[in-house]
Amino acid sequence: MLQTKELTYSYDGKNVLIFPDIDCGKGEHWLLLGQSGSGKTTLLHLLGGLLSPATGSIIVAGDNIATKRAAALDRFRGRHIGIIFQKSHFVRALTLEENLVLAQQLAGAPIDRGRVEELLGHLNLGHKLREKPDNLSMGEQQRAAIARALLNRPDVILADEPTSALDDINCQEVIDLLEREATATGATLLVVTHDGRLKARFPRQVLLTHYQPSL
């Protein structure tokens, strides 16, 4: 479902990051571990189509996104990939419900308010539907970001340090949710983290060692 081959990235054309090949099957949950500066976020952005690789291929749901053109890639990302960031961001002028409806719309999916309400209810945010994101707590914001990532039933969910800003209780809760909801939609989940608290939970792990600058 999520596969990379001989993936490299260069931000200046000289220094090259070389990534290990990844092969995550459908519905599998993976942990991508690495120290700060090991290129975790870069890899996640490559997998999410936010960056273009120098070489190699990234196969998401059978499509090589490394060769997709800008607008087509934006559309593909909206439909097939859900991304959760370390710090969640929202369109601040919109309510939580409107933010999720916007996510459906920008992805070109049909608007389904029932799905929005059901999902938020599931994540214990049903009563916050008409709140602006700024009025939510950190934990609530992170749960809302998960809801948004899951909304369009993506094939792949990428989570970038989803728990690093949370305390133990919230960390537990958020990762539980993430796994539960990913399982419910049958999505492939890849959590990128250096958070040691998660290691024991994911049997499938990729370790990102320090990148090797090419000579």
Binding site: G48, L50, A70, A71, D74, R75, R77, G78, R79, I83, H89, F90, V91, R92, L102, A103, L106, A107, G108, R148
Partner: peptide, 16 residues
């Protein structure tokens, strides 16, 4: 708003 603009791109919005 640069985060939310970037976010809109992640959600599928094109540059245009």
């Amino acid at each position: 708003r640069r985060y939310e603009l970037a976010l809109m791109r992640v959600m599928g919005a094109s540059r245009g």
